[in-house]
């Protein structure tokens, strides 16, 4: 096996080629203090992102500042049937449905069909939503100017499929769910966009289009907005989203 000095030299060069944690030093066979602490920091940030509570009022205000320019009406604040994070993490079924109060709050807005239900949910990273949704909407809403977009809904403790119930209640032809993705060790603030044609309770993930990894080190806002617009245009042409179920390591991530 290589001696540690060799490794240090090789490490830097290998590390330029991948975001993976390559060329870590060794003390005995174990990792050195600095690398252990860097890992712990990344994990701490990811954990904080998972457990951070969405500041829905502030987010709604930031969104309102964007939508007022494009006249998409008020911002609705909703809550899933999962009362808190601990429940949310163990009961994906509750995170996919609205609570009683939210369901009735949606009722007055039922005013005939709309083209697009725009749903913002904290998912597994409130940080991602707070950071990326206002600027993304600022670029996305003008691209959807020709379509009738329902008032933006901000949902606490929501999963992707909550867009199905909201879309159904709003009689929307299509839903866009912007949601915080499961934080990776190097990406605590990754945002995903899920586009679903004919949102109805019971849709599966295979019936959606997903645009993933929207963050500063990933897909930038301009490109993300363009991709969402393309997916929406295609959905209206095909009157369909999604394909056959994908085998993603066999296991659904169940956002």
């Amino acid at each position: 096996m290589s001696d540690p000095l060799d490794m240090l030299d090789i490490a830097k060069r290998l590390r330029a080629l991948t975001p993976a944690r390559l060329g870590l030093g060794r003390s005995g066979v174990s990792q050195v203090t600095r690398d252990v602490l860097h890992f712990q920091l990344s994990h701490a940030q990811a954990r904080d992102a998972v457990h951070a509570r969405l500041d829905a009022a502030a987010l709604a205000q930031a969104i309102r500042a964007q939508v007022s320019q494009f006249d998409s009406g008020p911002v609705l604040r909703l809550h899933s049937a999962a009362p808190d994070r601990t429940t949310y993490l163990q009961r994906p079924d509750l995170g996919r449905r609205l609570d009683e109060k939210s369901r009735s709050a949606l009722a007055p807005n039922e005013g005939g069909e709309v083209d697009v239900a725009m749903v913002v949910a904290d998912g597994l990273s409130a940080l991602a939503v707070e950071r990326h949704v206002p600027p993304l909407l600022g670029l996305l809403l003008p691209r959807l100017a020709e379509r009738n977009v329902a008032p933006v809904c901000v949902v606490e403790q929501g999963r992707v499929a909550i867009g199905d119930e909201i879309g159904e209640a709003l009689q929307a032809r299509l839903s866009i769910v912007l949601i915080g993705e499961r934080p990776g060790l190097s990406s605590p603030d990754s945002l995903g966009a899920y586009i679903t044609w004919a949102p109805r309770v019971g849709r599966t993930d295979a019936e959606r289009v997903c645009i993933s990894n929207i963050r500063s080190q990933g897909l930038d806002y301009e490109e993300a907005a363009a991709q969402v617009e393309r997916a929406v245009t295609e959905a209206f042409q095909r009157r369909l989203t999604g394909v056959a179920p994908e085998a993603h390591r066999g296991l659904s991530e169940n956002l």
Partner: peptide, 19 residues
């Protein structure tokens, strides 16, 4: 590498862990 799978976004065991 470093127990951090940068594609699947989860933590597994590192080369060092096996050693």
């Amino acid at each position: 590498p470093g127990a951090d799978d940068v594609m699947l976004n989860y933590q597994s065991t590192s080369f060092h862990d096996a050693l």
